[in-house]
Simulated assay, not measured.
Amino acid sequence: MSGLRAHVVVDRPRFRVDVALDAAAGETVAIMGPSGAGKSTLLDALAGLVPLNGGEVAVAGRTVERVAAPRVHTPPMRRGVVLLGQDPRLFPHLSARENVAFGPRATGAPAPQARADAEAWLDRVGLGGLGSRMPRELSGGEQQRVAIARALAASPRVVLLDEPLVALDPVTASDIRGMLREQLVGVTTVAVTHDAGDAVALAGRLFVLEAGAVVQSGPVRQVLGAPASAFVASVADMNRMPGVSARGGWTDGAGRVLVSADAGSTALAAEDGIALAAVFRPGDARIGGGAGVNAWQAVVVRVEPTVAGTRLHTSAGVVDVADAAAPWSPGETVWLRIEPSRVRFVPVA
């Protein structure tokens, strides 16, 4: 039985959110998209905090929201869905233990049992022995751990994560990401994130939203490895050059011509004129050489020091070089090239 099946239609001031989403029981799916794409609106609608203008939501096989007759609207607290956001939103007047015990007690669990279960959950999220502390006595990372324990202690059928790690430092975020991966096993989860690392670590499938619609979906690594839009390319740290198929290869309006050694590349079987994007990693591009296939001119826009060397942002792609004292300057013209084995052609969203 499906853990979550939804078609969410919500009218917003600038566009309509119209998203079909599914997650099998126990599966984690990730949602990515630029700011304003409708990600938080989607989660709020699934949680029952925003009314639908169309569609329906089913949790564990039970319809909890439907616009068409017979209309169904289940209050948020009765859906079996919990929403965890960037702000832990702990009850400031309750201890960590009582915050976690709140959900079970609200559903009728005896206070001693609820508190015992809360202590067990605090131990599972790495806060054993801190149950008596008040939220103000906890760090931001510890507060987020309490919020996660509180959400899971309520035995939800679906957990919605709205970028709960975004406000944490990298080390704390990494620790909590690992804890989430362990604690969410068997729990149907929808995780909104801006971080490709979160998507890879937590989810099996990825849905990409832009302007309220799904523009790409599939296994996480497959989507990130074949970005169909500029946004996906940016989060996957890939170069993406729009163009069209041409004679078994790729070309664009500037006359650049690329070929690929990827046997599965869409362009190799496409008729001429099909919209495709050439994608490749900054570390796979090279500087030097001259005119020819898989080589093109570009103007250096910005030179950025990195831990591994230097990143050159150019008018036609980003290139990583190992030299920390790269001899190029903004405004300089350089030749870029890419080996056929390092470039792929993917459909344009």
Rank of each mutant, 00 (worst) to 15 (best):
R136I: 14
L138I: 08
S139I: 09
S139Y: 11
E142R: 11
E142M: 15
Q143T: 06
Q144R: 08
Q144M: 06
V146M: 05
I148C: 10
I148K: 04
A149N: 04
A151R: 08
L152M: 09
A153Q: 03
A153W: 09
A154G: 13
S155A: 15
V158R: 00
V159W: 00
V159E: 01
V159F: 01
L161H: 03
D162H: 03
A167V: 11
P170E: 04
V171R: 12
S174G: 14
D175C: 08
I176K: 03
I176N: 04
R177V: 06
G178F: 12
G178I: 13
L180P: 06
L180W: 10
R181D: 10
E182K: 14
E182Q: 14
Q183W: 09
G186R: 08
V187W: 10
T188I: 10
T188S: 10
A191Q: 06
A191H: 14
V192W: 10
H194Y: 09
D195E: 15
A196Y: 02
G197T: 15
D198R: 04
D198T: 14
V200M: 14
A201C: 10
A203D: 12
G204D: 06
L206S: 04
F207W: 11
L209Q: 02
E210D: 10
A211N: 14
A211H: 14
A213D: 09
V214I: 15
V215R: 12
V215C: 04
V215P: 00
Q216V: 03
G218M: 01
P219K: 05
V220I: 07
V220E: 05
R221N: 11
R221H: 13
L224S: 05
G225A: 07
P227Y: 06
F231I: 12
